[in-house]
Amino acid sequence: MNKYLIVRFSSFGDIAQAMPCAVIIRQQDPDADIHWLTRKDFYDFVKSLPCIDRVWGLERLHGIKGLISLISDLKKENYTHIYDAHSNLRSFIVCSVLRLNFLKVNIIRRSKNRLRRLLLFWFRKNYFPSPFRGAISYKNPLKKWFSKIDFPPPIELAVETAPLSLPQDFILSSAIVIAPSATWELKRWPLEYWSQLVSSSPGYNFILLAGKDDVECDKIAEDNKKNVLNLRGKLSWVQSAKIISLAKTIISGDTGVMHLADIMGKNTIALIGPTAFGHPTRATSKVIETKVYCRPCTKDGRGRCINAKYKKCLRDISPQMVTNQLKAMQK
Rank of each mutant, 00 (worst) to 15 (best):
K219V: 10
R60P: 13
Y204I: 02
D218G: 06
D262C: 06
S130K: 15
K3L: 04
V257R: 03
C305R: 04
S147D: 15
W184L: 09
I155Y: 10
D84P: 07
G134E: 12
A276T: 08
L208W: 00
F9A: 01
K187N: 09
K234I: 02
R8P: 01
I52K: 05
L326P: 01
I251H: 03
A85T: 04
D31W: 07
G278R: 11
G253T: 06
K40P: 03
Y83L: 14
W237C: 09
Q325D: 08
K75M: 15
G303N: 13
S48W: 10
K76S: 12
R99A: 11
L208S: 03
P319V: 03
S201W: 01
A158Q: 12
G13T: 03
R60I: 11
P129F: 14
A210G: 11
S173L: 02
R315F: 11
S111P: 13
R295G: 05
P190I: 07
R114S: 15
I243H: 08
G256R: 02
F128G: 12
H279I: 04
K47V: 02
R117G: 12
S318T: 15
H62A: 14
G256E: 00
W194Q: 08
P131T: 10
R8Y: 04
H81C: 12
A179T: 02
D33T: 13
A16D: 00
I251P: 00
P153C: 04
N2R: 08
D169F: 05
G13D: 01
V238F: 11
